[in-house]
């Protein structure tokens, strides 16, 4: 295992949307060499956190650092971000998009991306506007996963695609894994990605509800992360007091 670097650090990170907190004094530390599942119900702040780290949301208070820097030009070259919307021009083709990434990102592997497009059975010269939502998502994941970035931020990468393609996406995530980088996947479909995760962060109303090593969490709760998620957020009143101790731990500490 390589040296432990902090890739992401937030302290008291807060973001309000018209008075309603999306992030509420969030303290978090994410290190390299890990695939991290960012889970939580709708409105728990997953998307907002990823936006801030990607540098597309500047209006926050508290600290947010990527590789020790405030998100900005310097971090963008090292961050590979996939938002949960379609961010490519309708009239572009996958080939155009590949060219664009090859032009702007020195760490983009165009050949591998092209192979992935074909694996997804996408037509490289078809216009995006003639594609379904799921197909467009595949184009975007192809772009994002074929960079050699230090931080990957994937906002719901698998929710809109068919099960066979989910497997391809998971493969590409595992393939892009390196001990130098940190990969954050936000999702509410934990079941599908659970075996791929090192660590899990449960967000709830803009705070870390529970965080830790996936294997440890499974051992502690005696079930899958998916079951843990359901029990955490579906039966709030259930006797989960013993998990409260873990939730109290500040931020996100790996226990490896």
């Amino acid at each position: 295992m390589s040296m432990d670097d902090i890739i992401v650090r937030t302290a008291k990170l807060t973001k309000n949307y018209r008075g309603r907190p999306a992030l509420n004094e969030l303290d978090l530390e994410l290190r390299n060499g890990r695939i991290i599942g960012l889970v939580g119900p709708n409105g728990s702040g997953k998307t907002t956190l990823l936006k801030i780290l990607a540098g597309v949301l500047a209006d926050y208070s508290g600290t947010a650092e990527v590789l020790g820097l405030r998100p900005g030009l310097e971090t963008k070259a090292q961050v590979s971000y996939m938002p949960d919307c379609s961010y490519l021009e309708d009239r572009m083709t996958p080939n155009d998009a590949l060219d664009l990434f090859a032009d702007f990102y020195t760490d983009f592997d165009r050949r591998r991306a092209y192979e992935m497009l074909l694996a997804f059975r996408l037509e490289p010269t078809q216009r995006l506007r003639d594609m379904s939502k799921g197909m467009r998502e595949k184009v975007q994941i192809t772009l994002v996963m074929n960079r050699a970035a230090r931080l990957y931020l994937l906002d719901e990468p698998i929710s809109g695609v068919d099960p066979a393609s989910r497997q391809l996406i998971l493969d590409s995530i595992l393939r892009s894994y390196s001990s130098e980088s940190c990969l954050v996947i936000s999702t509410h479909l934990i079941h599908d990605i659970e075996p791929a995760l090192d660590e899990v962060v449960f967000l709830d109303r803009g705070r870390v509800r529970l965080a830790g090593n996936a294997e440890d969490l499974r051992a502690e709760s005696g079930g899958s992360i998916d079951q843990l998620f359901r029990s955490l957020f579906q039966s709030e009143a259930a006797g989960l007091r013993e998990l409260g101790a873990t939730a109290e731990r500040p931020g996100f500490i790996s226990r490896r």
Binding site: G33, L170, D171, L174, P195, A196, L197, D198
Partner: peptide, 17 residues
């Protein structure tokens, strides 16, 4: 490790362990 992780669809650190 990477190949095994891909084959089993699990995290590379899990394979390592």
């Amino acid at each position: 490790v990477r190949e095994l992780a891909l084959e089993y669809g699990v995290n590379p650190n899990t394979v390592q362990r």
